[in-house]
């Protein structure tokens, strides 16, 4: 699908969790085409002092209604302003951008691992795999119970959900990667499993280590700073674990990703 710039009407706005707003945007073409991993790049309305657009994963797509959902976490000036959008506003968006999580119907279990706002692409992934019989396990960690963006799709898709919070207010106390480590440690056979990760860098680094140690295939989506989102600024470099023969040492999060095979790239704080 070719990339375009669209003015998207905001249809709904809801508080998804403490400091996280869910925006529903009218975008029929993108709703049809979006797969988990795809993102759009939004201009921050009324903030000409903020030069760049802000990238957001497509969180959910309602293909019959022609809408997409985004999760906007209040992280800084740009996301603060975007979180204040109201139904009736229009957002200037570039999309669809990036690649998506690969899915092999022959898999036995897909293991989604989300840290904080890293939950964003996994609703769409659950939508995408709903018709397949593989086991769906979601490991989702946040600081506290109020920070979790809960979803009706978890039950609808039959996913087994493992929640963790750092303060123990819901689910296991601790970090999501530790919960995953316990889960993986309980079985010796990892054939047919795949890990999909999205979240903070230390979490991704831990996933990488686990996946490599246990021989589990894995993919992660990264959220680097980017000035454009479509391969022109070359600012969102991701370091390759091994330089290519032609000397290439970096890939671009926006164009080569944001989804990468977990063994292919390195994570730095």
């Amino acid at each position: 699908m070719s990339k375009s710039v669209l003015q998207l009407p905001v249809i709904e706005r809801a508080e998804a969790a403490r400091q996280v707003v869910r925006l529903t945007l009218q975008a029929p073409e993108w709703a049809r085409a979006a797969r988990a991993g795809h993102f759009i790049n939004l201009l921050v309305p009324g903030r000409r002092d903020l030069l760049w657009r802000r990238p957001f994963s497509v969180h959910r797509a309602d293909r019959s209604r022609g809408t997409i959902d985004l999760l906007v976490a209040r992280m800084g000036r740009g996301s603060e302003s975007l979180a204040e959008c109201a139904p009736g506003d229009h957002l200037d968006a570039i999309g669809l951008l990036g690649n998506c999580f690969p899915f092999d119907p022959g898999l036995h279990e897909i293991i989604m691992v989300a840290g904080g706002i890293g939950i964003a692409p996994f609703d769409l992934l659950l939508q995408d795999v709903q018709g397949f019989s593989c086991k769906k396990s979601l490991f989702y960690g946040a600081r506290s119970a109020g920070d979790l963006c809960r979803s009706t799709l978890w039950a609808e898709s039959g996913a087994e959900v493992h929640l963790t919070t750092e303060d123990g207010s819901t689910g296991s106390r601790g970090l999501v990667q530790d919960e995953l480590r316990r889960y993986l440690g309980s079985s010796a056979n990892h054939a047919g499993r795949v890990i999909y990760g999205c979240g903070p860098t230390p979490m991704l680094a831990a996933l990488r280590e686990m996946a490599l140690a246990l021989g589990i295939k894995g993919y992660v989506t990264v959220e680097n700073r980017m000035a454009c989102g479509f391969g022109a600024c070359v600012g969102c470099a991701v370091e390759l674990a091994e330089a290519r023969r032609d000397g290439q040492k970096y890939l671009l999060a926006c164009k080569d990703g944001p989804v990468f095979p977990i063994e292919e790239i390195l994570f730095h704080d």
Partner: peptide, 25 residues
């Protein structure tokens, strides 16, 4: 010759502008 460019972070948003250090990849 081919050049790989600079390590990340390569860019940073500033007031009404941006800093870059891409390194001519």
């Amino acid at each position: 010759e081919p050049r790989p460019g600079n390590p990340p972070p390569r860019i940073c948003e500033t007031p009404a502008g941006m800093l870059n250090s891409i390194g001519l990849p």
